[in-house]
Amino acid sequence: MKTLRTTTHLALTVAAIFILTQCGDRTQSSRGGDGKSGDPQPTAGQSAVKDDQSQKDVVKVAVGSPDHSTLVKAVQIAEYVDVLSNAGPFTVFAPTNAAFDKLPAGTLETLTKPENKAQLRDILEYHVAVASYKPEMLRDGMSLGMANGGSIEIANKDGKIIVNGNATVVATVPASNGIFHVIDGVLLPPGK
């Protein structure tokens, strides 16, 4: 399997997204409090830990990929960045920008509206399993329980892994807190 390319051309953009990611979490970090002045809600969540030496977690892998800017944006909007920066272990099935582009026109715009945050979060959680599934562990016919409570079906034909019959794993990147499988389709929870 090929691994992701990171080009120097995109390095600045990547860094910019990264900064954005961290700042974005401040909205999340305050959600436990009332947000008023005088409420001592401290600092940001785990995604804001300053550490550019350790292996990248799944969020940083996504941020470092030029093909996942849509996913990164969605994860920020859904306030899911701190969760995925956690110890995990996570398996993230990460749709590419092109995969999002295949959705019916307007879908993404609708999902990213503030009032649809819960639905967006549910869809993103449907791409995450709390376990670290290497490609060779994804066996044909397997069903994986996902973070939203749903499950996905795995087909594995001679090493070609297809999720729910419509998204193919096209690359895999190990991360510090799990594993990041790049897929070419967006997974939609049944009945959503």
Binding site: T13, A15, I17, L20, G24, T27, S69, Q76, I77, T112
Partner: peptide, 17 residues
């Protein structure tokens, strides 16, 4: 930066960054 800033903003990454 205010809460909700990112959610209400498009992909103007360079500017945002």
């Amino acid at each position: 930066i205010k809460p909700g800033f990112i959610g209400n903003t498009g992909l103007g990454l360079a500017l945002v960054a």
